[in-house]
Simulated scan of single mutants.
Amino acid sequence: MRRTWWKRILAAVTLVGVLIAAMFITVPERKELTVLESALRDVVAPVQTGLTFVSEEAFSRIRSVFTLGRSAETDELRQRIRNLEGELVSLEEFRLENERLRALLVYRDGQDQSRLLLARVVGRDPGNWFSTIRVNCGSEDGVRQDMVVVLPSGLVGRVLAVAEQTSDVLLITDARSGVGTLVQDTRLPGVVKGSLDRSGRLRMSYLTREEDVEPNQAVVTSGLGGVFPKGIPVGRVVSVSNDPSGLTRSAEVIPMVDFDHLEEVFIILSH
C-alpha cells in the first residue's frame, strides 16, 4: 500500500517535470501559447516559485552550516596577523632607536661626558622645518640660552629659549642663525647662515677673492664670537659664486647633519 502511494507521487512529480520542460522548450519557437499550455503555466507557476524558494533556502542553510566555523576561524586568524604585524613594526622601531642611541653613546664616550646632555626632539614646526626644534630638556636639566647643540656628524644649532622642562633650538639652517666658520683646508674665514629659500642649504659669506675655495672642502666652526666651540664640523662646499659687489665671494654649503631626520641631539652644557 505504502509502495503504491510513493509510486503515485513519483509519477505526479515526473509529469509536472515533463510539462514544465515541454513548456520551456516550446516558448522560444512560438510567440503564442495554446490554451492548454497557458493553463498549465498558470497552474505550475506557484509550484515552480515554491520549489525555487525551497531550493534557495535549503542551499543557504547548508552553506551557513559549512562556512560558519570557517568564517569565525578566518576572522580570528586575520586579527592575529594584524596583531603580529603591529608587533613587528614596534620591534623594528625599537631596533632603529637602539642603533641611534648606541652611536650617540659611542660619541659621548669619546667626549667629556659631564658636558653632554642627551635630549629628544619633541616638537617641530611643519611650516618652517629648517628653523627651530623643541627638545625635552630645560632649565631643570641645566640648559641655558645659547648653549650649543650638536650631533656626532656636526653642528645642529644653539639654544634659543628655555623653559623648565623643554627648550627651543635655533638650527643653523635658519636664516637668522650666524656661525663663524673656516674652510678647513685653507683656514679661510667666513660666516655661515641658513638660506632664505628654506631649502636646508647653507650660505658661507665674506670669502676673500684671493684664496681659492673648491667644491667638497669641509667647513668647520672658527670659535670666533664666543658661542660655538672651534672645530665642530658644519658642512661641505658645493659651489662658489662672486658677490654682486665683486669684492667677496659666497659658497653654497651642504650641512653635515641630516636636518630632515632629527630625533635626538646633544646639548653642550659648558665649553
Rank of each mutant, 00 (worst) to 15 (best):
R2W: 12
T4R: 14
W6V: 11
V13K: 09
T14M: 08
G17C: 13
I20L: 11
I20C: 06
A22E: 12
T26S: 10
K31Y: 11
E32R: 11
L36P: 03
S38Q: 07
R41K: 09
V44K: 00
Q48I: 15
T49S: 12
V54T: 15
E56C: 10
E57V: 14
E57D: 11
A58R: 06
S60C: 03
I62K: 09
I62R: 10
S64L: 04
S64M: 07
G69I: 03
Q79M: 10
S90T: 13
L91N: 06
E92C: 01
L96M: 07
R100Q: 14
L101P: 02
L105F: 08
V106F: 11
R108Q: 13
Q113D: 07
L116E: 07
A119E: 02
A119L: 11
R120I: 02
P126K: 01
F130G: 00
T132L: 07
C137A: 15
C137H: 12
G138M: 05
E140P: 01
V143G: 00
Q145G: 03
D146F: 14
V148D: 07
L151W: 02
L151H: 02
S153E: 15
G154K: 06
G157A: 12
A163L: 14
Q165M: 12
D168S: 10
I172C: 01
A175G: 01
G180Q: 07
Q184N: 08
D185Q: 08
R187W: 06
V191G: 00
T208M: 04
P215C: 03
N216V: 09
Q217I: 01
V219L: 12
K230S: 09
P233Q: 02
G235V: 02
R236T: 15
V237M: 11
S239I: 03
V240R: 07
S245Q: 00
R249N: 00
I254M: 12
M256K: 12
F259T: 01
V265M: 11
H271N: 10
